[in-house]
Nucleic acid binder design. Sequence first.
DNA 1: GCTGAAACCTTCGGGAA
DNA 2: TTCCCGAAGGTTTCAGC
Lengths: 166, 166
Amino acid sequence: MVESPSRKPETAQSLVRLDDVDRRILRELQRDAGQSLEEIARAVGSSKTPVWNRIRKMRDAGIVGKQTVILDAEALGFEACFFVLVRTSEHEAAWQADFLEAVRERPEVQEAHRLAGDIDYILKVRVKNARAYDAFYQALISQVKVHNVTALLSMEEIKATTALPV
Amino acid sequence: MVESPSRKPETAQSLVRLDDVDRRILRELQRDAGQSLEEIARAVGSSKTPVWNRIRKMRDAGIVGKQTVILDAEALGFEACFFVLVRTSEHEAAWQADFLEAVRERPEVQEAHRLAGDIDYILKVRVKNARAYDAFYQALISQVKVHNVTALLSMEEIKATTALPV
DNA sequence: GCTGAAACCTTCGGGAA
DNA sequence: TTCCCGAAGGTTTCAGC
């Protein structure tokens, strides 16, 4: 795939209009970012230069972000996955900033969302085992004050994709 | 990055022991899979050939999976994200298979886990807007019988990574 | 916009230290 | 093991359509 020579995503709020070919390129990149330009070009029915220019434009617009590799969590010993529902009684900016920092600096938190409704946050936490989850939980509650925490334990990951249906 | 020339991940249940260098390579690959072998080698303090052999071994063992690209969901108009908590009264194999298929074939479902406890499943659903979520919801409940569905609406994604803390 | 081709890098594998 | 080299094949640019 095309290299990523430290181009800064500028506006991110792209005014770039995507056509059908752009979307097909995005589908190919999501499916396998390790393909050669030539393979992508063939798959989308174009040739290397135009595909290269389109990818560059979408990268500059911030639509195409970083290239990564999906690792097998189980094979690496991350055998437990929890969804953690957090309720807080604090709603000040300072508390929010603390919570945000706590979540961002803990590598076991793979996702975190602030929610509407009576549950304030949801976290997705991947750890080696239940003991490691407890260590995470203890660290979190000692760092920020939370009102109520519910952990949902995953028994089986039945689907996992980062792909958007573009 | 190193190409992925259709090598089948064999056992997946790797008996491959990873050392420190392997783990550093995985960290680099997760950070940016678009780097050249040479950059990775420099980052982990080795040289190209051994790094290439280690990546190949980890790919063959199924530890390193597919290479993909992270797209900016907002820039592409996916402005709503829901976590959907599903309870069912059915627990037969046939129902499970139906639910699994429904979830796997719907591209708006990015993640799905079967849970322990009184909530049976959690889904992460990314859609363009609330109306699109409703369309998804209607389609789902008409396809499989569910007892209770609660949707948690994300207001803000405060963290998102696919990286494991290897 | 697209194409084709030239210039330049990288990868991947062999052979030698 | 690691290093070095070279062929093969990739990416990026550019002139011409």
